[in-house]
């Protein structure tokens, strides 16, 4: 890859500039780098240092932090409660990412098969859901699933499920996560569906024509021609969904306001929030944060590699 960059560098205009003003690009990068160092660099550094220290309420009131090595990590990751949070986060993430990509793929294929004006209606409605701000979306879902006057319970009763009148979804963890999943899926399917649909439109008509001439039926064309061609797009959106669904925080926090059992519904982000802001255990919170950051970096690596390839191309 480095050789490719080297070759580009020697090609005309760019090389001339490089010879004349070697300092300019570095000067141009200074403001962005400074912002990143202040807003993210220092916090990450502080987090690494703090995770190796005992940093609790005492330190808040002026006691010097004590270096404790990997004690925080040891304490955090031998705590079964933490593993429950980790397991819950991973399960929530995989279920939601899988469902989101599955439904998005289904919608994308459906958009290809329907009449033109139906497709436009579908795209507009998906865009509306995508554009809705997160806090507004969670608020609406709380209203839809409100136990007294929510329209979901009303509808279920109308359909003959009498016992759903006054049913409170947000009280029990499992149904709490069901509602949270509805919100997450509702908000993220549009991006997946539109991306995969954009990929589907790239499949050239000639290829499909050739397949038809060879006698392939619609189902065969879908599974044997189209799917393999859009597989890269599906892989990327699935990866992005996994990364994004692992960090679900706001939806959970906002739903917990409705009176859910907090410790049984916390995901990783909420757990960090509770540990740090709630209990002022900064050492522990920093340790869990570093775990989350490392997990993200590992998961992001294939996506970043994909984008870098785009850059060279």
């Amino acid at each position: 890859m480095t050789t490719t960059t080297g070759e580009t560098a020697t090609s005309d205009g760019i090389a001339i500039r490089r010879r004349r003003k070697p300092a300019t690009p570095y000067l141009l990068l200074i403001p962005a780098l400074a912002a990143l160092l202040v807003g993210l660099g220092y916090p990450v550094y502080w987090q690494v240092v703090t995770s190796l220290q005992e940093y609790g309420l005492m330190q808040q009131f002026g006691a010097p932090p004590r270096f404790v090595g990997f004690d925080n990590f040891a304490r955090i990751f031998t705590d079964s409660q933490v593993w429950w949070v980790v397991a819950r986060s991973i399960a929530f993430c995989l279920v939601n990412a899988g469902l989101t990509v599955g439904i998005g793929l289904g919608l994308a294929v459906l958009m290809r098969a329907v009449h033109g004006w139906v497709r436009i209606v579908m795209q507009v409605t998906l865009l509306l859901a995508w554009a809705t701000p997160l806090v507004a979306a969670v608020t609406v879902f709380r209203w839809l699933f409100d136990y007294r006057t929510g329209v979901v319970n009303w509808l279920l009763v109308q359909l003959g499920w009498e016992s759903m009148a006054g049913h409170n979804y947000l009280e029990t963890p499992l149904q709490f996560f069901m509602v949270a999943s509805f919100i997450v899926i509702w908000m993220s399917v549009p991006f997946v569906a539109m991306s995969i649909y954009a990929g589907l439109t790239q499949v050239s008509e000639e290829v499909l024509e050739a397949a038809r001439l060879d006698g392939a039926g619609p189902t065969q064309i879908l599974w044997l021609i189209i799917m393999p061609l859009v597989r890269p797009v599906i892989a990327i959106v699935l990866l992005l969904q996994i990364i994004w669904d692992l960090r679900v925080f706001a939806q959970i926090r906002l739903l917990q306001d409705a009176g859910a059992p907090v410790s049984e519904t916390n995901l990783l982000g909420n757990f960090i929030y509770q540990l740090g802001v709630g209990q002022q255990n900064f050492g522990g919170a920093a340790a869990v944060s570093i775990f989350v950051l490392l997990l993200t970096v590992v998961l992001s690596a294939p996506y970043v590699r994909y984008l870098m390839k785009e850059d060279v191309a």
């Binding site: 807003g39 993210l40 220092y42 916090p43 990450v44 502080w46 987090q47 703090t50 990364i243 692992l246 960090r247 925080f249 990783l268 982000g269 960090i272 929030y273 540990l275 740090g276 802001v277 900064f282 919170a285 920093a286 944060s289 570093i290 989350v292 950051l293 993200t296 970096v297 992001s300 996506y303 970043v304």
Partner: peptide, 11 residues
């Protein structure tokens, strides 16, 4: 790609 949730305590 870094999540706000992994940074907000330090921030």
């Amino acid at each position: 790609m870094l999540p706000a949730e992994g940074l907000f305590i330090a921030q």
